[in-house]
Design a binder for these strands. Structure first.
Lengths: 190, 190
DNA sequence: GTCTATATGTAGATAGAC
DNA sequence: GTCTATCTACATATAGAC
């Protein structure tokens, strides 16, 4: 812990995280990561046996980061409805990135769905974390079909992302987020 | 027209179309297309100067195929609401493919959004065709915000696709399609 | 732990015989 | 129009000196 090696390992993960998002997993080479970090290509194999293991570490890092974000969200309010509304803010918060590169989780999952089933299963961990958290918020509000609602919310955000990215349309992000908030309210207010 | 050459050209396009969908554009090599068609790699350059040109031909082919599908849809009913409901059937009709590989149009667009802006613009043609057609159906029904509704419909279908593909969930496709039809009815019936 | 050199495979693209 | 041989670049991965 705290050694030089662990620092390098984390730098590789952080650079790969960003590159996998901006260029895609398959389009990111070790050379790209080397250029971004200054760490020579051959050195990577001291920390990771294969590129797959870098993906695994990147997904774990994203899961941890998302966990922290969700914990912060929980710390800010005890009202599950407010938490869901805050969660949906992610769309506009990340608007520019979303328009340029899509959703980091959704685009990775779809990329790896194509003839790389084992890798897609790794990427699914991030989706599962969000799905379970959203489900729990709906459950707290006493809704029976909480998992269905969680899938619906994530699907709406993914759909808005894919279309906004395809047409480079920031306004559509804004409008979709308003609609999603209305939908959350319609499901959680009585 | 009708020469051996044109036949080969079309066979290359058809094989590339399928491979771009199943494996992704960047993950499809000339060797893959050669294996699928039996046409030698080097021969491709007689028909296409670059891989980009194959993509362009594939997208044109998809646009034409979709145009035919929409024309058939128009031929079957004059009721724009029925047309939209038929259009939404695509999700379940292509259920197995969608779960395995996502949406051919959406996944291609998102893949090419990543550092390949010119290629993404090519892929956008297919989205634009669908968007305009759906918009026209809503307009026929006298709805003022027809383009917004078109984007919303496509976004819902894309969102259902991304999530169903991520979780390999056929039931979610079915449920989403029901919800989408309810939404279409709610917007178009008075 | 760090880095260079290199092995091995395959990518897109080209040249030129037939 | 068709096909083989080949070019150049770059991919992941390894070996081994320091």
């Amino acid at each position: 812990m705290g050694t030089k090696g662990e620092g390098n390992r984390q730098r590789i993960i952080d650079a790969a995280d960003n590159l996998f998002y901006r260029r895609g997993y398959n389009q990111t080479s070790f050379q790209d990561i080397s250029d971004a970090t200054g760490i020579p290509r051959g050195n990577f194999y001291y920390y990771f046996k294969t590129k797959d293991e870098i993906l695994d570490a990147v997904v774990s890092s994203r899961v941890e980061e998302l966990s922290n974000m969700l914990s912060q969200c929980e710390a800010e309010t005890n009202d599950a409805r407010q938490r869901l509304l805050m969660f949906s803010n992610m769309l506009e918060d990340k608007r520019d990135d979303v328009i340029q590169s899509g959703c980091p989780i959704g685009s990775l999952s779809t990329e790896l769905a194509k003839d790389e089933a084992e890798l897609q299963a790794i990427s699914r961990q991030a989706f599962t974390l969000l799905r379970d958290w959203v489900k729990q918020q709906f459950e707290t509000l006493g809704l029976a079909n909480a998992d269905d609602l969680a899938m619906d919310l994530l699907a709406r955000m993914q759909g808005a992302t894919v279309m906004a990215c395809a047409f480079k349309d920031a306004d559509f992000i804004a409008r979709s987020q308003r609609d999603i908030k209305e939908w959350i309210n319609s499901k959680t207010m009585n």
